[in-house]
Nucleic acid binder design. Structure first.
Lengths: 235, 235
DNA sequence: CGTGGAATTGAGCGCGCTCAACGAAGGTGG
DNA sequence: CCACCTTCGTTGAGCGCGCTCAATTCCACG
């Protein structure tokens, strides 16, 4: 919960030149469910998430919600093209973000090529994340999708422990992220637990026991460790 | 076929400053199926597609292919983060791309803030495209996915006509793009034709007859115009 | 301790995948 | 020019996975 990312803040203290004006920034704190910006808000701010978590989502015509990105400590967000925009809401009870005026940040980038290069890297990183997610969504079965999701979250999480993974989002959020139903998410997690791939410490703390299986694609030919054994074990 | 985009080439002739070195560029022509760059190639070039079309894809562990982006005239591609990379192949018989050395292009961006800003815009544009595609993949039914795909292609196509859409890619490419099977793509297109939403001029030329239906989501409550009538009409 | 949302599990059904066959289109070599 | 072949595109039959509806349990609130 208390994971923060006060490092990595590129824009306040830019590099060598010294001629640039540091971008003006404001630190804001949101509670669970609060909106950081809306779909129709003009894209005149960029954001950096320090602690907590947030969801980047869109509401579809049929009322469904589609989450296109989870924002975790260390992530930048808010840079949007004009024609398509999303909204961002805090997930964690205590979500801290640094807000930059887009104008002043672009001025900083114009004044310092190093800052501009960092912005490029951030954008390319976000693009790579988005395209990697396309691969996850393209997985065939729900177990594969959820497994790949756990790996992605583990790769992005700040948990030091090799096997521990803390999920800041609800099952509903996971469902809207993977474009499957809540029930299927729950069933897939139970299936992974039954297969001995994961174990739950708490509701939202997962232990990755057999990571290799997740990476290779669980569905391929994974058999439960022992059907009789796991039943006695689960009790 | 002969659609080109020789405009919009930002990097050869940069703006006001004059101090920047124009990026070195090479124009290359590829035939259908030829690889422009591979998954393991170092990301030391950026590209601009002038004419034709290309697919940006990854091969999954199970042998499936996942297309994460179609490149059309006017699109830039090749900027990749390190940890995840894809390959790009030409689709059209005659695909022309301009290749820039990454080093010289970044030098040009460092020397000219306007160029750097354009690169930012291009990256944000690509990100928005990718996230919009996540929404398409999140659609429920195959008809909805294919319908949304047609709209996306129409929005990006160079066809001047309001209703005409030329698809440069095969059904297999569409299937790998939407993460559904070829047969389902074919069935969905036939269904849309049956509903009177589209019509085929040739195999790859589509007329969007009732665009509103596509935008609202075809599945909602669309009935065929007339079941008896369409059967006689199809003949 | 009571309450309401979150999470899990079950039953039944429909959509999309798989396997299969066939037709159409384009390319090659004789 | 035609015969041949490969690849692409379409359509059908059957089945399995995930969605929907529903009930129950779990947990975090006040």
């Amino acid at each position: 919960m208390g994971i923060t990312a006060s490092s990595n803040r590129l824009f306040d203290c830019a590099s060598g030149g010294g001629k640039q004006t540091p971008a003006r920034s404001t630190t804001l704190t949101y509670r669970r469910g609060q909106q950081i910006y809306g779909e129709i808000d003009p894209p005149d701010h960029w954001y950096f998430l320090c602690s907590g978590a947030a969801r980047n989502y869109a509401l579809l015509a049929d009322g469904r919600r589609r989450i296109v990105d989870f924002l975790l400590p260390g992530d930048y967000f808010g840079f949007r093209a004009r024609y398509r925009s999303f909204a961002v809401e805090a997930i964690a009870q205590q979500t801290e973000v640094v807000r930059y005026s887009r104008r002043s940040l672009e001025a900083a980038a114009d004044g310092d090529p190093w800052v501009a290069g960092q912005v490029r890297e951030i954008a390319f990183e976000a693009l790579a994340r988005s395209q990697a997610r396309l691969l996850i969504l393209g997985r065939v079965t729900a177990v594969d999708k959820v497994g790949a999701f756990l790996l992605e979250m583990k790769a992005r999480s700040s948990d030091a422990d090799e096997t521990t993974l803390t999920l800041p989002m609800s099952r509903y959020d996971i469902a809207d992220y993977l474009a499957i139903s809540v029930e299927t998410v729950s069933r897939a997690l139970s299936e992974l637990r039954r297969l001995g791939v994961i174990r739950f410490a708490k509701k939202n703390r997962v232990l990755l026991l057999r990571r290799r299986l997740l990476e290779d694609g669980v569905d391929r030919d994974t058999k439960p460790v022992s059907l009789r054994f796991e039943k006695t074990c689960a009790a």
